[in-house]
Design a protein around this nucleic acid. Structure first.
Lengths: 261, 261
DNA sequence: ACCGCTGTTCCGTTGAGCGGAACAACTCGC
DNA sequence: GCGAGTTGTTCCGCTCAACGGAACAGCGGT
């Protein structure tokens, strides 16, 4: 009974939803009754009644000059309520568990806070030798895969600003301290969609991370898989594949629309 | 026949809209069937069917763990379509960025919708203590600088009508609740071209706003700069100067011709 | 094992919504 | 200015889809 097709629905409601979606799809601001009716294969009379019902509730407005209909502010209110209620952490939790289980390594979630990164969640595997990160601690944005995944997807000018005024202090002997090198590393991260690190932030730790992007394309969080570098080195490719698949889905869930090629 | 009450509507559609609004209002992410049914005074069975219809179309999702419902990404899609079609927004975006950068405070853009005001865009500065507004939410037209900037530039008879039938409920202890006082405040706003507020709508927030006028002289939007009242108090004059310069230019861009003296 | 709470389904009744068609209002071309 | 061809809007009788009370099921607490 979790199946969508078996539960009772109301056709009028589904039609209403389709009408709203038609407005969302349209590249013109206004739509006419017949236009909508034809696209959805419903009678004009019905579309007319639906539009007027939506008008009464603010979802649709009416332009009396052209006698055509357009989306109203209530639509925005509801849409943004969706965003308001999305807690990346809650959303990501089950994914972290799944990733950790599938790879038998630690899965983490980080967010950016000002110009630092902090871990806000992690799931560790049941094995003796495993990675554990410090939740709540601040780390720089230039070292480690989670950090680079966040940094690489910021607008270019913000990256430039950040790197201009930030001193790249080495945290380990593998930390990238050359600005030009880091710049081209970030370009690569953006191109392939994920970042890797072998001991850049923490000696002996390897990781792969990808960003979760919101509806504006901004990175709101980054998710990583990490473990002891000796065994993790061989897992990088598989981890990258798994993690980008999940972060991609999460991004779409919070409204990110991948640009069509 | 422009009257909303006389045209035919479909109750199921209006109920659907009310259900979605209930989710927008809620401060919890998920809502249960009974919860919604009680709030709207509809039977549980109907709410259940509506929710499942919306589920089939992506507006609503179902959390099988808690057996409760939440807004889905389609809601966001439709909401953002509304924004996509507001062309003032595109025009104003770079200006907001510039203003925010120049002042290191938050720049916002609002439009009027019926007799309310809603924020449709904002750009925030990179600093710890800053103002952030809720996009999509409705606010009254009588409190706060953005609202007063819109209201003051409406035709006088519309202002009068509005103030006659509107109760000036205080949002903070600084809200203007005296009609005569508000009337003379609006005259002043119109005279100098911008509105200010120190905590009228939101305690602890200060702001300056000016309207963007179209070719008929109607205010289509208002732009504001806002921040914590303690530091903003000293920035008011400079902010007013900056903002009126920009809104003036934007108004001319969309066809407004300043009356020649 | 109880209770009280959810969400979910059943089912017979009925009136709300359907849609074809008529009407009205507007635009365009000649 | 006057049809022809668009729109949006309303009418109205028929029908069947939605209503809602009530029964059912599946939790979670004590």
């Amino acid at each position: 009974m979790a199946d969508t097709s078996t539960v009772q629905t109301i056709t009028a409601v589904e039609r209403t939803a389709e009408v709203l979606k038609a407005f969302a799809r349209a590249d013109t601001q206004t739509l006419g009754v017949t236009e909508v009716a034809q696209e959805l294969g419903i009678s004009k009379a019905v579309v007319h009644r639906i539009l007027n019902s939506l008008r009464a509730t603010g979802f649709i407005e009416f332009d009396s000059a052209s006698r055509r209909y357009l989306l109203g502010p209530t639509a925005l209110d509801v849409g943004l309520a969706f965003l308001r209620h999305v807690d990346v952490r809650d959303l990501a939790r089950p994914v972290l568990k799944e990733l950790s289980q599938q790879t038998d390594e630690t899965a983490t979630l980080s967010i950016r806070s000002d110009w630092q990164r902090i871990y806000i969640d992690q799931v560790t595997p049941e094995r003796e030798l495993k990675m554990t990160v410090a939740l709540g601690r601040s780390f720089p944005l230039y070292a480690g895969s989670s950090s680079k995944a966040l940094l690489a997807f910021l607008p270019q000018h913000e990256i430039d600003e950040y790197l201009e005024r930030t001193e790249l202090r080495p945290l380990t002997d593998r930390t990238i301290t050359d600005v030009d090198l880091l710049h081209s590393e970030l370009v690569e991260v953006r191109a392939r969609g994920y970042a890797t690190s072998l001991g850049e932030r923490q000696s002996g730790a390897g990781s792969v991370a990808a960003p979760i992007l919101d509806h504006t394309g901004h990175p709101v969080a980054s998710m990583s898989l990490c473990g002891p570098v000796e065994r993790f080195r061989d897992e990088v490719d598989r981890a990258a594949e798994l993690i980008t698949e999940r972060t991609g889905r999460l991004s779409r869930q919070i409204g990110y629309l991948p640009e069509q090629s």
